[in-house]
Simulated assay, not measured.
Amino acid sequence: MVGLYFNPPEGAVVLSVDEKSQIQALDRSQPVLPIMPGMPERRTHDYVRNGLTTLFAAFDVATGEVISSLHRRHRAAEFKKFLIKIDKEVPAHLQIHLICDNYGTHKTPAIRTWLTKHPRFHMHFTPTGSSWINQVERWFGFLADQKIRRGAHKNVQALEADIRAWVKNWNTDPKPFIWTKTAEEILESLAQFCRRISGAGH
């Protein structure tokens, strides 16, 4: 897994894949009051909830580019549609390595059957409780901080339009994430975590 980040195979693309589910279209109960001379911007902290969406994202660990798709539901059927989109957008001569978590929708019989028919796809699953290894999680954090938490959306369509625009803007100047630790340090951190949780019941 860590080796895919540090030494990706030749003739292949490595994509960090996950879903950010239940993104809420929230609108503030009162409009934001703009900055006035001597007064800071004022905003209420209570919201009106206007629906949910799920963002499927594949973060290219080499370039930082993102393939994304929005769906109102979060099932294996939607994950399969996302795999089909990835298959169309990644050049046909490249192998595709996907780094995913162990969520059930990634392993259903329908998904396994689809993957069998598309042998250029190679699935790599992060250990349980180690989603931090998956770089797309960090990208989701940027999206949440810069767009979702600061926004106000009267409906799901407005939220989805904002997310699409943000992703499109990201892809005009994408940035990969650079590991600050060596592969050995990351593996040792993971080993320590596994030792801690295996001893938790004693």
Rank of each mutant, 00 (worst) to 15 (best):
T54F: 00
G129D: 03
L26I: 11
Y103T: 05
V48R: 10
R72F: 07
A200R: 12
Q30G: 04
E89C: 13
T180R: 03
F140V: 06
F56A: 01
P91N: 13
I186A: 08
N134G: 06
E184D: 14
A77D: 10
A158E: 14
A183H: 02
V2M: 15
G129C: 12
L115V: 02
G11K: 15
R138L: 14
C100S: 04
A200I: 09
S69Q: 02
T53E: 01
A183Y: 06
G64Y: 04
T172N: 03
E184G: 08
D162I: 02
I86R: 10
W170L: 05
K168P: 00
R138H: 13
K175E: 09
V136S: 07
F82T: 00
R42D: 01
K181I: 00
I133M: 15
N102T: 13
R72D: 13
P31G: 14
N102D: 14
Y47G: 08
P119N: 07
G129K: 11
I186S: 07
G104S: 15
A165C: 03
T128Y: 06
H153S: 11
T116N: 09
I99M: 10
G11P: 05
E137G: 01
S189Y: 05
R120T: 04
A92V: 10
I186M: 05
D18H: 00
A191N: 12
F6E: 07
Q30K: 15
T116D: 08
R195S: 11
P91T: 10
S189W: 06
G199C: 11
L187V: 03
R149Q: 14
K88E: 13
T182Q: 08
K181A: 03
A25H: 09
P40R: 09
K88Y: 08
E65P: 01
D87C: 12
P109K: 09
P91Y: 06
R28Q: 02
A161S: 14
Q22C: 09
R150H: 08
R120D: 02
C194D: 13
A161M: 10
A165K: 13
E89V: 14
E184K: 15
D87K: 15
A58G: 03
G104W: 03
Q146L: 13
A76C: 02
T172G: 09
V48N: 12
Y47H: 00
T54V: 00
G104I: 08
D173L: 10
V167I: 13
G38N: 02
R120I: 05
W170S: 08
M123K: 10
F125N: 02
P9E: 09
E65K: 15
K81I: 08
V32W: 10
F125Y: 07
H71V: 00
